[in-house]
């Protein structure tokens, strides 16, 4: 099958063909982008601009009433809980990297080695992802029951431990919510890593073996470089995703005990939906966005430096 591009290549001079090639490529490329752009424009970008606009206004319901300058920002930043909620969000992000950052990659590497029963293990790793978010929250709330009839306390009780307070223990709340998030999400991410690991050229392993490389060296020198791009991307997305967390604490603890699990976005949610102060809610959202931008710039700096070394 010969396409018109290659025909035109043979007819016209090489310079011209490159030009028309470029134009056609641009048209095709933009046609591919178009449906997505429409979706983004209508459901993400335009609404976001409206939201940003509202953050500078005094609002009544969703209508901008009066230009307020930075008043909303001032109000939310001086809130006595603001620093705490920002700090909580950072803590969520930290724990999510500790608990859920590398687990999927390790699981993927392990899955990659299994010969028999692979299908079962893959299925069980992915199984929590099938469970809908609300169900996960309800379920873990039941499992984390702090009294003696909670499932986990029952299990640990048999081992002679506990009973534990779980989510009611203010210092444990955020890590535990992260455990449930990691539980619910690691399988999907692991499958992505697995797909990538399976595309590793097997002759690389063989070559390494001839050089006498050990198991760990093969991971270090073959697999890790292969997935490093993906790892960097997924970690960044995880950081950004978790920093915006609010549905899990909302469903599991309501932000308690004593705001120990209130995240910055839960504050934004509360402003909008518990107090109906949309302007302030948008302002909190904007501040969170700015912090995230800072995060990602920092992240790119750090990872780029590593690359050049």
């Amino acid at each position: 099958m010969k396409s018109d591009v290659s025909i035109s290549k043979s007819r016209i001079g090489i310079h011209n063909s490159m030009m028309s090639d470029k134009i056609k490529r641009n048209i095709t490329g933009w046609l591919m982008l178009l449906p997505g752009c429409i979706c983004f424009l209508i459901f993400v970008i335009q609404p976001m601009i409206v939201g940003i606009y509202l953050s500078f206004f005094e609002t009544k319901g969703f209508e901008a009433v009066r230009f307020a300058g930075l008043q909303n920002y001032k109000d939310v930043i001086t809130d006595s809980l603001f620093i705490k909620t920002v700090w909580n969000s950072v803590s969520y992000t930290f724990w999510s990297i500790v608990i859920g950052g590398f687990t999927p990659l390790i699981v993927a590497m392990m899955l990659n080695e299994v010969v028999r029963g692979k299908a079962f293990f893959r299925f069980s790793a992915y199984f929590p992802c099938i469970i809908p978010g609300i169900v996960t929250a309800i379920m873990w709330k039941i499992l984390f029951q702090p009294d003696a009839n909670g499932f986990l306390n029952m299990i640990f009780g048999k081992l002679g431990l506990g009973p534990f307070q779980w989510l009611q223990n203010a210092t444990m709340t955020i890590p535990l919510i992260n455990v449930t998030m990691a539980w619910a999400g690691f399988g999907g991410t692991a499958l992505i890593y697995l797909a990538s690991l399976q595309s590793v050229d097997h002759s690389l392993y063989e070559a390494a073996e001839i050089d006498g490389a050990s198991f760990w060296r093969k991971i270090w020198h073959i697999q890790l470089p292969h997935v490093s791009g993906l790892l960097k991307m997924l970690l960044l997305m995880q950081i950004m995703g978790v920093f915006k967390v609010f549905q899990q604490p909302l469903a599991m603890t309501g932000g308690g005990p004593n705001n120990a699990s209130t995240s910055i976005m839960l504050t934004a949610y509360n402003y909008a939906f518990s107090y109906m102060q949309v302007g302030r809610s948008s302002a909190v959202g904007m501040i969170a966005g700015i912090i995230l931008c800072g995060f990602s710039i920092l992240y790119f700096r750090v990872t780029r430096k590593k690359d050049s070394v």
């Binding site: 641009n26 490329g29 940003i52 953050s55 609010f246 949610y269 966005g289």
Partner: peptide, 27 residues
């Protein structure tokens, strides 16, 4: 495809991922 403006599109998409969605629920 390396289209003209592709980088801009990607940057915008990446930045929408950073801004919180609750800001724009009602719009």
């Amino acid at each position: 495809m390396k289209v003209k403006g592709g980088v801009v599109v990607f940057t915008i998409i990446l930045s929408t991922y950073m801004l919180p969605t609750t800001v724009c629920m009602a719009p």
